[in-house]
Design a binder for these strands. Structure first.
Length: 748
DNA sequence: CTAGGGTTAG
């Protein structure tokens, strides 16, 4: 084009010496200068812009006082990030109009000086006696929403109403953004109702607003209206809609939207690919997320973090850590979200070595001061069994949020430290931090552990409601556990029958477990029947039931359970335990002989069992459901994985070191009593994380006080669940090492 | 001559 060729060629050849030749010539008409400056402003071309500006000055043309041309110069400099120059020109204008003001305001807005913009409006009205038009109003409103200036924004709303410009779409959208920013979704609905007309941009603002503030149904309404109008818009619309699908965890809808996007021919960009990955990740379809990741090449921190998070959310913790190494190789610099995801992945694996390395790194980079990272660190230490390290971190945190408190409270609860948990809860209230739904799960677990029935009911029936919280299934399940633990089994059953809620398998299993502990055979059988009716293939029920039969020496019952399992071809998930020794993770499978040191480990187990026998240990293998086929083989050694892992850790660690073992199932009664005694004879602290909680064995007793906690979901869905398959699906046996090289050695 | 919407943690 004529314009571009002129811009890009002619002025480029202008040198200082040639300026004098151009001096007397009228090179630019005003009209041409305006076109040129606009083009340069759009490109953000500071270098050429200065040259043209210089030419305009030296050309001695009458145009230099031309207001439109000068407005273009202000625009040029503010678009190039040179706000000081823009302001200087504005100050020296011979004459100015409303566009001069509006251009300057936009400059302040885009350069981050949002709070100056309402002041400029005030000056404009008082000094130049100009009334704001739609350009000015939408710019000032945007500044208010970007800068959190709610008060000023409200005043602008008044101006908008006075001017009658509400009907203007730009102004309306800016108003919607303002009310979205201030979480006033009722205000948003009000504007939508009173102002007709909608554009793609309106839809996007509103959709995002509804999503951010939990108005999922309203967001769905917007989406279905977009569909009925035949188009779902552009890339940004798709980003928002994928966000909606992610929120709904509706994979089917997400796939349909994805198909539609493909058909519409839209190409992925870094935002869109992140949004699609996030959708697949949150909908539990990790393969979809990975597919998108590899089909779009140009990733930034955010899209990398998205794929790491998708892996984490789908319990592919190792894969998340491995992919981070790739990210580093590509020189993408991680941010606080990246570190949070990585630390949560370590937490999922109880990979304390990786976790500590990352801890060292965030301390060095300064990311440790972000709440998200602090929370992730606390979570990592809690789930690796280092509750005191978590407490120390908590004490040193500069700023905390609800999640921080929830983590430390339920952390103590899961470690059987009920009193500490309740003290923390009191501190939380004293710090004026609003407790949430999750907070009370941790609090009720703590009450359960301490056997404080009345206190628990007070929290459930009064305090929660004082904070506007409606108790849910998790809370009620905690109460069942609370009553059950105190031996009030009939009351627990009555509570379940009288509470109008749909109880799930977990709740009934909590009651069955209580029956088991308190040897209430009759009620136990009743509950078990009910459980098997709910889910005839639930292994957990069979195991509990079999334990119960064994406890009252009803061996016929135990045999019946085994027969049922065999007949129904129900496979018990293999028992896995692992322990980390100097950054190496050693994984054990029950009755596994693949570890290179199997002979020594078995020898160690035999020795330990012999040592604790005099202290009263009676092997209780009959009560334990092993793999039925294997069990009938001759010479079968019933060594559960946790026994193997503990024995190995005892062999390989210094004599005072505490031992940390993680397992995928619930610890069985036999191992539990064995480990209590082993902690006594070896004088070691042995911390075992099972699916539900932590058992801290010390000097012959356990922090769980021999009672299992209800299996309520706490903090998030991945709490205490593990990934026993690697990304490629290979089965993990014997020794496996989780690499812990993340660029920074914690001891450097 | 001047104005608007997007991705990651729990």
């Amino acid at each position: 084009m004529f314009l571009t060729s002129n811009v890009h060629r002619a002025p480029l050849h202008v040198s200082v010496s040639s300026l004098s030749q151009l001096n007397s010539q009228s090179v630019f008409s005003v009209k041409y200068a305006v076109k040129l400056l606009k083009k340069l402003a759009d490109d953000g071309n500071f270098k050429l812009g200065k040259v043209v500006h210089a030419l305009l000055i030296v050309s001695n043309h009458a145009s230099k006082d031309h207001v439109i041309q000068n407005n273009c110069l202000i625009n040029l400099y503010s678009r190039c990030g040179q706000l000081a120059i823009a302001r200087h020109i504005f100050n020296r204008l011979q004459q100015r109009n409303i566009v001069s003001w509006s251009t300057l305001m936009t400059g302040y807005l885009h350069n981050g000086f949002t709070w100056e913009v309402p002041k400029l409006l005030k000056d404009m009205v008082s000094v130049d006696n100009l009334f704001p038009n739609e350009y000015v109003l939408s710019t000032v409103l945007s500044s208010c929403s970007n800068g959190g200036l709610l008060h000023e924004g409200r005043q602008c709303h008044a101006l908008v109403l006075k001017s009658g410009l509400v009907l203007h779409q730009y102004v309306k959208n800016a108003l919607l953004s303002l009310y979205t920013m201030s979480s006033d979704m009722e205000g948003v609905l009000e504007i939508l109702k009173s102002v007709p007309g909608s554009s793609n941009i309106t839809d996007n603002v509103v959709l995002k607003g509804f999503l951010d503030h939990g108005y999922t149904n309203e967001a769905l309404d917007v989406f279905s209206r977009m569909l009925s109008e035949g188009s779902v818009g552009d890339k940004i619309s798709y980003v928002n809609i994928f966000g909606l699908c992610a929120r709904l965890k509706d994979l089917k809808l997400g796939q349909q939207v994805h198909c539609r996007m493909l058909k519409s021919g839209l190409q992925l960009d870094v935002f869109l690919s992140s949004a699609v990955m996030d959708m697949y990740g949150k909908c539990g379809e990790i393969l979809g997320a990975r597919y998108i990741f590899y089909s779009y090449p140009d990733h930034n921190v955010v899209s990398w973090t998205t794929i790491l998070a998708a892996n984490f959310q789908n319990e592919c913790f190792e894969e998340a850590l491995k992919m981070f190494l790739q990210m580093e190789l590509q020189d993408v610099v991680p941010n606080e979200y990246t570190f949070a995801v990585l630390l949560h992945s370590c937490a999922g694996l109880s990979a304390i070595g990786c976790g500590k390395t990352l801890h060292a790194r965030v301390e060095k980079t300064g990311h440790g001061t972000f709440v998200v990272v602090g929370n992730a660190l606390i979570n990592m230490y809690v789930r690796s069994g280092h509750i005191e390290a978590a407490r120390a971190l908590f004490s040193n945190m500069i700023c905390r949020d609800t999640v921080t408190w929830n983590l430390i409270i339920s952390g103590f609860s899961h470690h059987g430290r009920g009193e500490d948990a309740l003290y923390m809860f009191q501190d939380m209230l004293a710090a004026k931090e609003q407790p949430s739904y999750v907070t009370f799960i941790g609090v009720l677990l703590a009450c359960g552990h301490l056997g404080r029935i009345e206190e628990g009911f007070y929290y459930l029936q009064h305090l929660m409601r004082d904070f506007g919280l409606e108790p849910g299934l998790e809370h009620y399940t905690c109460v069942v556990g609370l009553l059950g633990k105190a031996g009030k089994l009939d009351e627990a059953e009555k509570f379940m029958r009288s509470t109008p809620i749909t109880w799930d398998v977990i709740a009934w299993r909590t009651l069955l477990n209580a029956c088991n502990v308190h040897r209430n055979y009759g009620l136990g059988q009743k509950v078990a029947d009910h459980l098997l009716q709910l889910n005839p293939n639930d292994v957990g029920t069979y195991i509990l039931l079999s334990n119960m039969h064994a406890k009252v020496k009803r061996w016929d019952g135990v045999a019946k359970m085994r027969k049922l399992l065999r007949e129904r071809n129900i496979k018990k998930e293999p028992g896995l335990s692992w322990t980390e020794i100097r950054n190496e993770t050693h994984m054990f499978v029950s009755d596994d002989t693949q570890h290179p040191e199997t002979a020594q480990i078995h020898e160690k187990v035999r020795k330990l069992l012999a040592e604790i026998k005099p202290l009263g240990y009676i092997p209780d293998t009959a009560s334990v459901l092993h793999d039925v086929e294997q069990e009938q083989q001759e010479g079968y050694l019933s060594y559960h994985s946790e026994k193997l892992a503990v024995a190995y850790a005892l062999m390989k660690t210094p004599s005072q070191a505490p031992i940390h073992v993680i397992k995928n199932l619930r610890i069985c009664d036999d191992c539990h009593s064995a480990l209590k005694l082993i902690s006594k004879v070896t004088m070691r602290v042995i911390v075992v994380r099972d699916v539900n909680r932590f058992h801290s064995f010390q000097n012959g007793s356990c922090s769980c006080a021999d009672y299992c906690q209800p299996e309520v979901v706490s903090l998030n869905k991945t709490f205490l669940t593990i990934n026993h398959k690697s990304a490629s699906g290979e089965k993990i046996l014997g020794v496996r090492t989780v690499s812990a090289r993340f660029g920074t050695d914690p001891f450097l």
